[in-house]
């Protein structure tokens, strides 16, 4: 391996090579991913865009080890997912991947603090370390003073901030965000994007979105366009560009 390809591999957090995923709906076979090649480097703020059914969420699910590819290889931090056991995949998701879902998916019986603490607790991080980190991330997403509120006492935007805090608390290699702004109003969406952009710039957190939202596309520094399960093209922008 040459030194340039080695440094490229080191930079790369996620790499998809010829990934295919098919779903069967009755007698119809849907190619949700059809030979997808994609590489995400550390520190990227990238959006997967495309119409409904183009394969964005499937791509995120495959990278997040929530689903298994029919063909091709997926590498996360150099580890090929198909070679990992169910327990190793679970550990990978817990320790190296952060998830932000469209529907927030917070645990309703836990407070904002406890939701943000959840993955750290699963990791067995000591209480004191956990407390420091959780307060830090809640402050980073602007939720100081609301630590003890339960999800039903928070607005949609606040709930999504808790979800972001939960995703970044364990310091994952990448945060996969599936339509994170779909359920909030435009002002809240801008605020959430500010937060995520700030986390990306200040702390180097890598974000990969799937989105239809023009506002997300406007903030993304790289846009990967998907169509019919394939990569249809991509745009790269400098950090100062706007849509």
């Amino acid at each position: 391996m040459s030194s340039s390809s080695q440094s490229s591999a080191e930079r790369s957090i996620v790499e998809l090579i010829g990934v295919t995923k098919r779903y069967e709906q009755g007698e119809v076979v849907i190619h949700a991913n059809d030979g997808v090649d994609l590489k995400i480097d550390k520190g990227e703020f990238t959006a997967l865009v495309g119409p409904s059914g183009s394969g964005k969420t499937t791509t995120l699910n495959l990278i997040g080890a929530l689903d298994v590819a029919d063909e091709g290889s997926i590498f996360v931090e150099g580890r090929e997912l198909s070679r990992l056991s169910a327990t190793e995949l679970s550990t990978l998701r817990r320790d190296r991947i952060g998830f932000v879902f469209q529907a927030y998916n917070l645990i309703p019986v836990l407070t904002a603090y406890e939701n943000a603490e959840f993955v750290l607790a699963l990791q067995g991080v000591p209480l004191e370390v956990r407390k420091k980190r959780v307060l830090e991330v809640l402050a980073a997403v602007g939720l100081e003073g609301r630590e003890n509120r339960r999800p039903d006492e928070l607005s949609g935007g606040q709930q999504q901030r808790v979800a972001i805090a939960r995703a970044i608390a364990p310091k994952p290699a990448i945060v996969l965000a599936d339509e994170p702004t779909a359920n909030v109003d435009s002002h809240t969406a801008e605020t959430l994007l500010d937060i995520m952009e700030n986390l990306n710039r200040e702390f180097g957190v890598t974000f990969l979105f799937s989105t239809h939202d023009e506002r997300v596309m406007a903030r993304a520094r790289r846009i990967v366009r998907m169509m019919d399960g394939r990569i249809a093209g991509e745009d790269l922008r400098s950090s100062g560009d706007t849509a």
């Binding site: 679970s90 550990t91 817990r94 529907a103 993955v119």
Partner: peptide, 16 residues
């Protein structure tokens, strides 16, 4: 189910 699916997704062990 959805709540449990999310817990498993973020790395909770099935046994837990």
């Amino acid at each position: 189910k959805q709540e449990f699916g999310m817990m498993l997704a973020v790395g909770m062990r099935p046994a837990q």
